[in-house]
Nucleic acid binder design. Sequence first.
DNA 1: TATGAGATCAACT
DNA 2: GTTGATCTCATAC
Length: 189
Amino acid sequence: MSRPLHRTFFARDVHAVARELIGATFLFKGVGGRIVEVEAYHHTDPAAHSFRGRTPRNAVMFGPPGVAYVYRSYGIHWCVNFVCEEEGSASAVLIRAIEPTEGLRAMRRRRGLNDARLLCSGPGRLCQALAITGSHNGLALDKPPFALFARCKDVDVAIGPRIGITKATELPWRYGQKGSTFLSKPLGV
DNA sequence: TATGAGATCAACT
DNA sequence: GTTGATCTCATAC
């Protein structure tokens, strides 16, 4: 297995972190896979939850980096972010899709599906497959139940507009593994 | 293939 | 009361 990602990995520019997360391995209680799609959010970005200041929901975004920010989306789904940069910068990377490699059986059971492509191709789907919920909000990413490992070899990273937002849609802050069939939506070549 | 409704909660107007 | 970093299912072409 490759190098574990330490807390300091996240204490850097959110875009650098987002780019380097593509191809990294993300596990929750031993279940997960290779990250193929993420989006960057920064407190200066109108689309970010932290843009309008601290609330009970987004409080961990304002804390130290290297922890998980988990929030409820549209009342039903959970979405997971990695908090980045220095404490107070309130920036984070939204994990949008992974290529399942570990714990396929558990993921299929939780999702009620067989098709590996549909298990984790979207932020809500990903959290359902890995069983990540609001109770894991604020947990450190370099300690169980989380585990993160740097990618072994370089991958081609494609960049494009973010998805599912209505503000600042022009910012090309979505990063994905070029050519992956596990993306939530295709990225431009 | 493509669009539309529903689920259901935190934050905002 | 409305909107949103979503997904699933039903119905229509």
